[in-house]
Design a protein around this nucleic acid. Structure first.
Lengths: 169, 169
DNA sequence: ACAGCCATGTAACTTGTTACATGATTTT
DNA sequence: AAAATCATGTAACAAGTTACATGGCTGT
């Protein structure tokens, strides 16, 4: 529900049209998660269906401007007021992959770990490079920092897996 | 696509029926991500549609046993052989939330950070407690360790956010 | 004239997820 | 006999995602 709520938050600053929302979303989160413009419109329609936003008249340039409703504001407040629980998070594909590699037949777990580490290392280099390039925008900077912190944690976990699997054998 | 591939990996050890698959999946990943039994069947049907698995005759007890196909084995090998890229990962709701809190009007970002930290701290305590309880199973242990590493990284990131936001103001 | 961006929207599809119906077997 | 567990399956929906159709406006 990240996109729904993200758009809601952007609309809390005032009415916006679809293209504008994508621009502002990407300005905040950066190149990390590009947002398909089509998805903005599908999401807006569903939010309209759920009473969170309301479309206004088309403006001079024929653009349809959406406004956040009272229900929308309430939902946004609920979102910001409630922390994200562990159970809310999606299944982590990498973790499942390693767990299943341990269980599966004819799979070299150590090799899976090594390959992932190489990829994550490379990603980390890209991220630090990207970070040097971005000087504007607090949000964008924090998003990048989060990616870096997570990649580092992944790296540490992969090392840990290697160590545990080595002494298991 | 974690569940699809997870089931595929479990089936690589030999034919299994739905209930058995859920059992083995949860035995590996533990209580972290409980798997609804209905989902096992929907996923198996879709995998059958895609030619990754094939249902056999019902056995003596009337249980439908699924077998992995050659295509299924190939897909599994591809999965294990290809590392997970940054772009494959789902949007991180917490990161989006903070980025949007910075952008939104009338939202106390610091408060959002504080609340999340309390929740994450509590989760971390639960996780370390759970870790002491689990002595069996390498996979289950690694899954828990991953959760812990991630929660710690999140905690560090939240601290970092607080620091950055403080000097911004 | 045409390339390229601004702008909107829809159809189609995927995976994840749950609620529910149904019955067999096992335990208390 | 009742409760719990084993076991299978379906219907329905949400959310994410992309490909495509359509048209206006702008700069070269």
């Amino acid at each position: 529900m990240s996109i729904r709520h993200g758009l809601l938050a952007l609309l809390s600053r005032g009415p916006r049209h679809g293209y504008q929302l994508r621009g502002e979303f990407e300005a905040s989160t950066g190149a990390t998660w590009p947002l398909n413009i089509g998805q903005v419109y599908t999401t807006l329609s569903r939010m309209e269906r759920d009473g969170l936003v309301a479309p206004g008249e088309s403006d001079e340039q024929g653009r349809v401007v959406y406004t956040i409703t009272a229900d929308g504001r309430a939902e946004m407040a609920r979102w910001f007021g409630t922390p994200i629980a562990q159970s809310d998070r999606p299944r982590d594909e990498l973790v499942i992959k390693l767990a299943m590699a341990v269980a599966a037949k004819e799979v070299d777990v150590a090799e899976v770990v090594r390959r992932q580490r190489t990829a994550t290392m490379r990603a980390l280099q890209e991220l630090t490079k990207a970070k040097r390039a971005v000087t504007q925008g607090t949000a964008q900077r924090l998003v990048l920092d989060s990616m870096i912190f997570q990649a580092e944690a992944e790296q540490r976990w992969l090392d840990h897996c290697e160590a545990v699997l080595k002494e298991e054998r």
